[in-house]
Amino acid sequence: MISSQTMERQQASSLGGVDRAEPLLPLELLELELSLEGYSGGEGGFCEAVRKAATEARGEFLFDLPAAGLVEDCRRIAVLRIPTSDKNMRVVLTLLDQNGTEIRMQAPDENTEHLVRFADAFIEVLERI
């Protein structure tokens, strides 16, 4: 069970936190997902394709990492920060499937919310530098 303090911290995060009331993929991310449609660059071109799509959506590519043990049937996870319609920033995950042929978007959930906390800390470090 998530405490009210933890939920408040998640809601107040500079990254938009994990709001379980929001749909899995908000409308403002549809364009981002469509820009990645038809990807066939394999693992090697994943970061470049996701970075370009994030930039075109006025977002930020934060980092990527191997997906092993975090999300089933995926090879890599890229963590992005994307603007929402209300001018806030939202963290989304971009997943490369196990075959390296398809990219899909996913909102953080209870299995990946630690990535949001890590991304929040990552942003804080960068802002201090």
Rank of each mutant, 00 (worst) to 15 (best):
M1G: 15
G42Y: 05
I103F: 10
L29Q: 05
R81N: 10
Q10L: 09
F63S: 05
T112R: 09
Y39I: 06
M89Q: 08
L80W: 01
Q10F: 13
L95T: 06
D19C: 12
L15M: 13
N88W: 07
A107Q: 09
E37I: 08
L15Q: 11
T55W: 09
L34V: 08
L70F: 06
A12G: 04
R90I: 00
D109A: 08
D73H: 11
G45Y: 14
M89A: 06
R51M: 15
L24M: 12
E56Y: 02
E22R: 13
Y39G: 01
L96F: 00
G69T: 01
R58V: 00
Q106T: 07
I77C: 02
E56H: 05
T94D: 04
C74Y: 13
L32C: 12
N88E: 10
L80N: 00
P83S: 00
R104L: 12
S40P: 00
R20V: 09
L32F: 15
S35R: 14
R20W: 15
I82R: 05
E72Y: 11
F61Q: 03
C47M: 08
L30S: 12
S40T: 02
R104M: 12
G38M: 05
S3W: 08
V116H: 02
S13L: 04
I123R: 14
D19L: 13
R20Y: 15
A78R: 06
E31Q: 12
L96T: 05
C47R: 12
V91P: 01
V125K: 11
I77W: 03
L30I: 11
T6M: 06
V92R: 05
S35H: 15
M1S: 15
P26M: 04
E60P: 09
V79I: 01
L70E: 07
P23I: 14
V92C: 03
I129A: 07
R75K: 15
T84I: 03
S4M: 05
Q98V: 06
E124H: 12
I2Y: 04
A57W: 01
E72A: 13
P108Y: 02
F122I: 11
E60S: 10
H114L: 07
T84P: 02
M7W: 12
Q11S: 15
S14N: 12
F61K: 01
V79N: 02
A54P: 02
P26Q: 07
G16S: 04
L30T: 13
S13Y: 03
F61M: 02
V91K: 02
R75Y: 11
R128P: 10
S35K: 13
V92W: 03
S3E: 08
L32W: 13
G100H: 08
E8Q: 13
R117G: 10
L93C: 10
G42C: 04
V91H: 01
L24V: 12
I103E: 00
P26D: 01
G16M: 02
A53M: 06
R58E: 09
Q11W: 15
A107K: 11
V92P: 04
M89N: 09
L96Q: 03
G16W: 01
R128W: 15
G38S: 03
M7S: 14
V125D: 06
I77V: 07
A57E: 05
A49Q: 08
D73P: 05
E43S: 05
A53I: 11
D120F: 03
L27Q: 15
L32S: 01
A119R: 01
D64Y: 05
A119H: 02
R58Q: 10
R20K: 14
A57T: 03
N99P: 10
L115W: 02
V18T: 04
T101Q: 06
M105Q: 13
R128L: 13
E8S: 09
S85N: 11
